[in-house]
Amino acid sequence: MKFLSRGLYALVLTIFFQTSLTAEYLYKDEVIFNPAFNAEVNKLGSELYEKTGIAVRLVMLKELPHGTNIVQYEQELLKNFSTPTILLTFSEMDSKVDILAYPTSLYEYFDKKQILSPISSPVQAFVIALLNFDFSDMTSGGTILPLLAGKAKKGEVLGKYSASMFNGYADIAEQIANSKGVVLENAVGSANQNSILAVKVLFYGFIVYGIFLYTKRRLYARRQRLEEK
């Protein structure tokens, strides 16, 4: 009986330890509460850590603590980790998303500005720059904010949150893997993103063409008025 008790005790400890390990990459979830989402994040995060030694942890908050901004919250949270860690943090009520890495040398492995860009494609960035007559910042390729900004029907908001945050999480993980020269078996891949990009290129191409025709028509009308004078 003592042997069985010890064996059962060891089994419980093993299961608890393994559960703790597989839960650490979705570090905090106060929003989604979806086992499938949890499993996907932890599967990708675990593989990335095994192959690169870098932990990417997702934090899903209902709301930031009173009087604390998102960067301050992340800085405090980072004190809990001894390994190289990147935090991707989302606060629903504050409508905030941020990425913070420690040590700061980790930023060389991924493009934070691109991931957090509110603009999803180069074509969209060009159209916006053209409309504003400002080409100083053409950053695009955002994998989180464009999805978060999209409208969702009643009952689909959590799906929007999980899709956008996993998309960003996967983007960080895959960029790190590429920088380190490793292949992630659980990577999302770029096939779906390429299909979306093709549709957006076509859509915004029509917009650019429409702007071109409108500008051409205005210039022609202006020239006609000058000639009549």
Results as ranks from 00 to 15, higher is better:
Arg6Ile: 12
Leu11His: 13
Tyr25Trp: 01
Leu26Asp: 00
Val31Ala: 01
Ala36Ser: 02
Val41Ile: 15
Asn42Ser: 04
Lys51Val: 05
Ala55Arg: 14
Val59Lys: 02
Met60Asp: 00
Lys62Ile: 10
Leu64Asn: 10
Pro65His: 05
Asn69Cys: 03
Glu74Ala: 07
Gln75Phe: 07
Ser82Cys: 00
Thr85Asn: 06
Ile86His: 04
Leu87Phe: 01
Thr89Asn: 00
Ser91Lys: 07
Glu92Met: 11
Met93Cys: 07
Pro103Asn: 01
Thr104Val: 09
Tyr109Lys: 12
Tyr109Glu: 05
Asp111Glu: 08
Leu116Ile: 08
Ser117Leu: 13
Phe126His: 04
Ile128Tyr: 02
Leu130Asp: 02
Asp137His: 07
Met138Gln: 07
Ser140Leu: 10
Ile144Pro: 10
Gly150Pro: 00
Lys153Thr: 00
Val157Met: 15
Ser162Tyr: 06
Met165Asp: 12
Asn167Trp: 05
Gly168Thr: 09
Tyr169Phe: 14
Ala170Met: 03
Ile172Val: 06
Glu174Asn: 14
Ile176Arg: 03
Ala177Arg: 09
Asn178Trp: 04
Val188Ser: 06
Lys200His: 03
Lys200Ala: 03
Lys200Arg: 13
Val201Trp: 06
Tyr209Arg: 02
Ile211Ser: 14
Phe212Pro: 03
Leu213Asp: 11
Lys216Ala: 11
Arg217Cys: 03
Ala221Thr: 00
Arg223Asn: 13
Gln224His: 04
Gln224Asp: 06
Glu227Leu: 11
Glu228His: 12
Glu228Trp: 14
